[in-house]
């Protein structure tokens, strides 16, 4: 790795830290922006008992200046102390820990589906053209209009009522059973993204197929398969990667919809439940977690893209 690449990576790391810091400030300030007393906001908008008020004041350092409150909060979070939910009367970490696994599994399952079918159908459409292209185009046009909850509804109806191939409720026990249970939720999450990624892949590949350097390779008699791999797909991959990266990173948040529809107790459904009950400490920590995941995943994709195409990183910073 050259010095310039390392310098670029350091620059990226700095930008990443700044974005994380600023977004954590935004998330923290939600308490201040909530109408009414911050104590009430933390307690979930209900009338807290005097002991609770005292506990909240203590835990959130409400007698300190705001910037110190932030520092205490972020310091605690970074040390793994995620605070206490006064509604669940439990440490937030105990709420998240048992639910994280199933969400991660669901998201990974979904990513596998998205990558295989999204990129696969995009490549197929771009290379075959004609009727295949048309079919994929129609399917993906409908697909990008199919939100998770609609697909979930249809799947529940078809599989829950008409066929009984897959379970439509809960997350199951053990890895295999869990995967079995997560199949429909993963499909419901994946459909829109498959369609989206398929279109991105197709247009990126079609654009590269028309690139002038592909003409060069054709005249030189390079075999078609090799032209596709080394000159078309390789060059299309930065675009496919960066767009799919941004989308896939958002899956952790969107997974809430599938979890809700299929009654899965993951962090998504925890987030929704906490929001519905106005449990700000839980929502804040989960938001921070999701934002961090999003930012870090995007940064990883950026690094991969920079390895494939070192010049793009430079020009993108200029743009």
């Amino acid at each position: 790795m050259s010095a310039s690449t390392i310098r670029q990576l350091l620059g990226k790391l700095g930008a990443l830290a700044l974005t994380l810091f600023l977004s954590s400030v935004v998330i923290f300030s939600s308490i201040l922006l909530t109408p009414g007393d911050p104590v009430a906001a933390i307690a979930g908008g209900r009338r807290p008992t005097p002991e609770m008020i005292e506990a909240i004041r203590e835990a959130h350092h409400l007698d300190q200046p705001v910037w110190l409150q932030y520092l205490y909060w972020i310091g605690d979070v970074l040390r793994g102390d995620l605070g206490t939910s006064f509604l669940y009367k439990a440490p937030v970490v105990d709420l998240i820990a048992p639910r994280l696994g199933v969400t991660v599994l669901l998201v990974l399952y979904t990513i596998v589906l998205i990558v295989i079918f999204g990129i696969g159908s995009g490549i197929l459409a771009a290379r075959r053209g004609g009727a295949v292209d048309k079919t994929v185009l129609v399917a993906t046009s409908v697909g990008v209009a199919m939100p998770t909850f609609v697909v979930a509804i249809l799947l529940i109806w078809v599989f829950g009522r008409l066929l009984s191939w897959f379970p439509v409720y809960g997350a199951g026990e053990g890895l295999l059973d869990t995967l079995y249970h997560l199949t429909l939720p993963a499909i419901s999450l994946a459909v829109l993204y498959i369609a989206y990624l398929s279109r991105i892949t197709r247009s990126a590949i079609v654009a590269q197929q028309g690139a002038e350097h592909v003409d060069t390779a054709m005249v030189r008699g390079i075999p078609r398969g090799r032209i596709f791999r080394n000159h078309v797909f390789l060059n299309a991959s930065p675009q496919i990667l960066s767009i799919s990266g941004a989308t896939v990173a958002g899956l952790f948040a969107v997974s809430a919809i599938a979890e809700q529809a299929f009654g899965i107790g993951g962090i998504g459904s925890l987030l929704v439940e906490a929001a519905a009950r106005k449990d700000l400490p839980v929502v804040q920590v989960l938001s921070l977690l999701l934002v961090a995941l999003f930012v870090v995943l995007n940064a990883v994709i950026d690094v991969v893209v920079a390895v494939i195409d070192p010049d793009s990183a430079k020009s993108r910073r200029d743009a």
Partner: peptide, 9 residues
Amino acid sequence: AIPGLVLAV
């Protein structure tokens, strides 16, 4: 960096 759904929640 803050997904729409998270901001809405």
